[in-house]
Structure formats: structure tokens, C-alpha cells
Design a protein around this nucleic acid. Sequence first.
DNA 1: TCAAAAGTGTTAAGTTTACACCCATGA
DNA 2: TCATGGGTGTAAACTTAACACTTTTGA
Lengths: 225, 225
Amino acid sequence: MNSYYSHNPKFYVAVDCIIFGFKEGELFLLLLKRNFEPCKGGWSLMGGFTQESESTDDAAKRVLLELTGLEKVYMEQVGAFSAIDREPNERVISVAYYALINIDEYDRKLVQEHNAYWVNVNELPLLLFDHQQMVDKARKIMQQKASTKPIGFNLLPKLFTLSQLQSLYEVIYGEEMDKRNFRKRVAEMDYIEKTDKIDKYSSKRGAALYQFNSKAYRKDPKFKL
Amino acid sequence: MNSYYSHNPKFYVAVDCIIFGFKEGELFLLLLKRNFEPCKGGWSLMGGFTQESESTDDAAKRVLLELTGLEKVYMEQVGAFSAIDREPNERVISVAYYALINIDEYDRKLVQEHNAYWVNVNELPLLLFDHQQMVDKARKIMQQKASTKPIGFNLLPKLFTLSQLQSLYEVIYGEEMDKRNFRKRVAEMDYIEKTDKIDKYSSKRGAALYQFNSKAYRKDPKFKL
DNA sequence: TCAAAAGTGTTAAGTTTACACCCATGA
DNA sequence: TCATGGGTGTAAACTTAACACTTTTGA
């Protein structure tokens, strides 16, 4: 043991995941109705402890996989939360991450086993610990990022209509947008490509389906919505 | 010991400080030329270990105080850095913070004792560990924040000239700005107040000294530079 | 007297916003 | 046939960008 380090304390380092999903014009978070201690019965984020073999990024990916069955998900760090009394029983420092997933593609069985539910972000229950703070910060960072980087597409199916895209951005920003102005901006981004497929679910007339071409985006990475 | 926690590993949790200063049109970082192990002789950020009695925010403030003698400094978290091998000898998870200080007001004796030096951000030496990554992320966050919140004033003396303010923003953004357009924008922010004092150092003619009125800012918190 | 930084307005270009109607279709 | 969401262009308001000369004074 190296004496430079050894007189310093060590801490449990947790990760907590703010998992965003989008459906029918609403943003949702995947939350646990805890069927385990501590604070059994309360609502919380999905979390877990960082292991020796992992970075916190790895741990967050593992925890997300454990709950949703999903890999290669868009995740970004929200920050470290370290108030002394942030958990009641033990000192735990937690690093929060947010994830953007396609709400149609997670593993329903795993979610059920964990007693997790999709909850509308605007109707959140009281969250345990400092999880509300984490959610607030995650939303702020995600909103900021979504306005300048094409991360929103992670919340949509591969094929989406412009109305879906618009209502996604409306719920991220919490404000309505003008349809014509929105489509004008989309039209300028060549990497948002119209396909020849038609969505027949959302309307009688049918709406053109679009896709995000990430390779084309990288050639000319300008984004603003 | 609670068994829910006890089978998980614990970690040293460090903090590292990216300390910005501004002088004569240049941005500087306060860096250690390490006169202690590990990696004695290398350049690094000032850091320290989080203690049981502290949040990481507290630890960062303590570490900054230890090096500069300054309290009540503007600090913001940059994020957690947790790669398994980010330090060579021991597993340490570090939370980085940046600080904006008035470069005229730190405790020179303390800085000397720590073998710390102000280094131009555009001429940084090779930094140890992942400290360059921390600096890069800190600069990005700081730049973003400085464009929408009046945090830049923390880098200036209480009284400053508009030329100083402009050259500060030029070095933060890494681009030149138009003097008349800049002053027009400043003129619209009523909380950037002209005083009746004149700075005679920077020019023969003398330049009006301004101050940031934080109370006035809070009344109408719009900022954009 | 001249070098060096301070100070000061106007115009053109570009961007953003506001706004309303026709289309296609399934029920 | 009608209710529903899909799709389309223009003009005014506003914001941003470009630009050059006069002032003051210490050396």
C-alpha cells in the first residue's frame, strides 16, 4: 500500500441512470418502484455500484443493459453527486448518466423483473435521495445538447415522420414550434433523408418517413433545431 | 455493515482543480510542477483527496484554498474521470472542477510553496494522467457558460475597462471581435456599470472603468456576449 | 508631433418569426 | 362528406456583421 494514498478514505461509487424514452408526443423516464432495500417502496432511478474492473462509464452501461437489455445506447455523464448525507445509511458518491433509448426496443421482461415503469417526465413521483436533482440536471444538459447535436434521433425509431420529430423537440424544449419553420430547418439538413416509405398509422393521408444518415451528418456536421 | 453495500468495492475519490486566471489579454492555468510523488517532476493540476467529512464540492474548495488562499471563488464541476488506469499506482476516481479567479489576488507564498506556476492555456506542457482531458472539457464548459452567464467577471478585477472585458472574451472564444459591436452589446446590459474612475495604465488617454453589479443583474438576468 | 489605445453610428445582409390554406384518405 | 393530420411559401421584424474616423495624451 502506497502511503501517499493510504491515509485517505475510500468510498462506494455508484452510478445512476436517467433513461429517457419518447412516445406519442411525450417524454418518459424509466423509474424503479423499488422492491428492495434501502427505501423499498420508493421511486428511484436505476443504479448500481462501480466495480474494480470498470470505469463509471462502463458501470452505467452495465446498469442500463441490466435493466433494458440494450447495448450501444447514447449515454452522457451528468455529473458527480456527493453530498455527505445523500443516502441515509451509507456514504455513497454517485455519478449520474442520462441515456436516450428507442422506447420500442427495450426488453420488457427485464423491466418487469426490476419493477420499473415508464413515467411521464412532467408527472414524476417524489424521487428518493437526490434523484430529482439528477433528473433536473440531466434534462438541462440533454436539452442543451439536443439543440446543437443530433442526439434526438436516439429517441425515435429508425424511420420517423416530421411530425414525430417536431413533437419530440417540442417536448424537449417545453414549447410549441411552427410547423412550416420547423420543416424549413429540417429541409436544410441533408442528412435528414426522406425515404420512399409512408407511415399510415398516424394519419389517414399517410406521412413520409425520414431517416437520420449519420455518415452524411459527419461530412457536414451542422445541426440546429 | 449493511450487506447491500458491503460486497461492493470502495475507491479513493480525488478532486482536481482547473484554475483559470486572466492577465494582459491571455488566459492562464495555475499548474503544479510536482515536487512530490507520484510522478514527481511532471506537470499536473492541483488535486487532493475527498475526506469523509466533505462533498467533492467541499474538497475542491478546500484544495483551491490550500493553493491560493482564496475562498468564495466561482467553481463549477467538470465531471468525474474514472478510467481504471488513469493513475499509474492506485485506482483513483477523480472529480474535476474549474475555478475562475482574479489573478491579482491569490496568495503568492502558498503558490510558491506548492511549486505552482501560471501557464498560458495555449502553451501548456504535457500534463500527467488524464489532466489534459480535464482541461479540455473544462474549457469547453467554461466557454459555453461564459457566453450565457456573467461568470467572466470573476476573472477580472472589480474595476475593469471595456478593452479588458473584450480581450477576455476574445481569448475565451479564441476569436477576435468587433469593438463597436462588442460595446453596443455591453451598453445594453445595464448591470455593467460605468464608474467615474479612469484607468491610466493601459493607455495615455485613459479608459473608463466599469463594474459588474450583480444585484442589478439578478433583477434582469439576461446575458449574451 | 506622433504613436497608441479609447471612443463612437450607420447600413446591408442574414436570420427568425408570423401566418393560412389546400391535400389525401379512411371512417 | 367530413374530420384528421400532412404538406407547402412569403413578407415583415429583428438581429448580426461589416466598416473608419476622431479624440486624448504621454513620451
